[in-house]
Write a protein that binds this DNA or RNA. Sequence first.
DNA 1: TTTTGTGAACGTGTTCACAGCG
DNA 2: CGCTGTGAACACGTTCACAAAA
Lengths: 219, 219
Amino acid sequence: MSHISEPTVRRLSNYYRVLEEVAAEGKRMISSQLLAEREGITSAQVRKDLSAFGSFGRRGLGYHVEHLRDEIRALLGLDRRWKACIVGAGHIGSALVSYRGFADQGFDVIAVFDADQDRVGRTLEGLVVRHISQLGPKEGFEIGVIATPVRAAQEVADALVAAGVQGILNFAPRKLKVPASITLRTVDMTMEFESLSYALTHTSDSGPRRRRSAPRRRA
Amino acid sequence: MSHISEPTVRRLSNYYRVLEEVAAEGKRMISSQLLAEREGITSAQVRKDLSAFGSFGRRGLGYHVEHLRDEIRALLGLDRRWKACIVGAGHIGSALVSYRGFADQGFDVIAVFDADQDRVGRTLEGLVVRHISQLGPKEGFEIGVIATPVRAAQEVADALVAAGVQGILNFAPRKLKVPASITLRTVDMTMEFESLSYALTHTSDSGPRRRRSAPRRRA
DNA sequence: TTTTGTGAACGTGTTCACAGCG
DNA sequence: CGCTGTGAACACGTTCACAAAA
């Protein structure tokens, strides 16, 4: 199974959700063609992705829905739970603590930290917000979630690494530096806003109006 | 400037943030090399990206920080404001209404909708939550943000399109169908969780433990 | 016949390396 | 000399097309 590309893992995530739906609909088998249609991709892509992990299908029949779903669940590591903490009890941090999807995917949020004394001591979903200085290796956090303002993000990342986490989910719009042994995923909403803004500016109405002078051509 | 790839636009977003920082530090010029280092990419990538839009640099000197920052701001369409509404006043929706980054990037959230009568009438950041049935074309929303549970997402997307939005920012973990003329960007946290879970499962400790029986080889 | 699994062909995005210009 | 702008080379991911299996 050598090396798996990032896009493949992301699509695996999608297949998993589709398979859950299809299983709920009671379908027993599904072809790569049908899976592909739900995702808006080609059937060859689906087969390539899946074949990177093994031979899950049966020629002439397709894939067994529940079996494939369970295989993918295991591949994604969703058949176990992770001990997670959230740093930052502001708007986003609070929303994340309450977010059902976290628990559903196997993330147990067992602590919330913040640097602001006004927030320390408050209760969020049954968890008392603790001061960031209490973040340490004793509680065995495996995953840390960064939901702080940008300026604090790198410092918090360092603290999480020192506390022994293996993975970090970063919601601050900044590229963070972590040791190679730590897995980092960043959810950068700012980038999505700007990508949307770009697309809206450069489609339909009036096009990419050039400010000042005439359009230059390259030599 | 023909066609610009999605990755290029995303990096433009990053360059913009770096340039804001560098400008604040008082630096006048910056080379593609230095810009690249901050992003962890190659200098050739930076030059290729920028040259797709014009010749912003000076050979032997580099790029003028403030000038380049302003050019990119205009390219991303950040030199204007967008009228936006948020649908879903739950945890995530509430967090987004309060999110500073929205306003900073030129998004003016001027309305919040929800389907739940218990939430309708509440106030979020000075905005009264209104019932989803009031979502219509009269207020001239240009961008709609979906912050509802998955099951409502497609229906809300349809309603936003009917209300005349040009772009949709979707926070529900589902691939939505919208007309080709509408720009859709999805922030799928679930996918990031799962990608993180995958990475953690397949690195370091014990590797990708195979459940049941021996690994099959392909024929 | 249907549909998978996969080598080969293709296309797209990244990196190299250097000509060109300040 | 320093650094940009860019064609050419390269790497990587997607799609094609078909042999193999049910």
